[in-house]
Nucleic acid binder design. Structure first.
Lengths: 164, 164
DNA sequence: CTATTCCCGAGTAAAATAATCAGCTATTAA
DNA sequence: TTAATAGCTGATTATTTTACTCGGGAATAG
């Protein structure tokens, strides 16, 4: 799963929609001004969200967008996948069987990215729009036992920058 | 933590280095041809890796790069953080106290990205270069109980594309 | 009707990524 | 001591992606 600011915009917009819709449609113009995102860009994002079945549109005056599902059933992973085009297969010709590099060897890092993508997806699928809206997303201390990898002994300083 | 192809290149190169160095330095020219990455681009990446204390350099004929630590002590998170510049704070003026948006409200999605970054870091910190080299990175079925989020009932189709 | 709002495609601007280039320094080995 | 190797550096360019703009259209409420 690709993680870009595009997906972040989508989640911000969907959260705004969830927050300000009380049964009534919310116009993109409102979301645009509140979230400081350009209207046209929002339109592009919502076109994808609509095709992805995450929102319903209502045209005409008083129109706008409505969540197509409940907030609980709207998972963050869905939102991000709806707007973020699958990454073009970089240099890894990931045709599973044949392998990645010219020498026929499946590139060693393939499994890593595969599993990382899986981890990210698992997490984002575990979080709903409702969770984000009601601040239920909270820091979890440790990670499950993943792969056969050992944990690094000392915890280390790190600067987060998936800043949102 | 930023996840780009740059970080992927770095991990590929480091894995190649780990694999082909038997105590002796490995030249970037060798890595470049094996991994099909341009030499100059590799030089840029290794400049950062060296500053990050992940590799040592040996100049002159027969020179090249050596791992500065054991493969077990070289965590993937370190490699990626060494080459991927911290993302410039997008629109979220993340001055903790003041909050994100103009209205003073800490943006609702902030905690989400914060926690996602944490999850990614936790995972990548749990994997060492040795794990990648020796194919110890394997699919784990489920995720720990994270936040108060509920799991989505039905498992859903998804197209991974953190392809490596 | 007319204003509002979604809708759509094409085009542009800015930024990040990836690569190139030119030239330097240290080290080895002939 | 010279020539070849290979790291080191900064500047520049090319490519791609992101973010945004523009110009129209179509549905619908009042």
């Amino acid at each position: 799963m690709k993680l870009t600011t595009k997906g972040r915009y989508a989640v911000m917009a969907m959260t705004d929609l969830a927050k300000h819709s009380e049964g009534r449609p919310v116009s993109l113009a409102d979301i645009a001004s509140r979230q400081e995102i350009s209207l046209s860009y929002l339109e592009q994002l919502f076109a994808r969200l609509r095709r992805g079945g995450l929102v319903r549109s209502v045209r005409g005056p008083g129109g706008g967008y409505l969540l197509a599902r409940t907030m609980e059933d709207t998972r963050i992973s869905d939102v991000i996948m709806a707007v973020d085009e699958p990454m073009s297969a970089t240099r890894c010709k990931s045709n599973s069987a044949t392998g990645c590099l010219s020498d026929g060897t499946r590139c060693l890092t393939h499994d890593l990215w595969d599993e990382l993508g899986h981890q990210i997806h698992l997490y984002l699928d575990s979080v709903s729009l409702d969770d984000v809206m009601n601040r239920k997303v909270r820091r979890s201390a440790s990670q499950q036992d993943v792969s056969s990898a050992q944990k690094k002994p000392e915890t280390q300083e790190f600067s987060l920058d998936v800043a949102g």
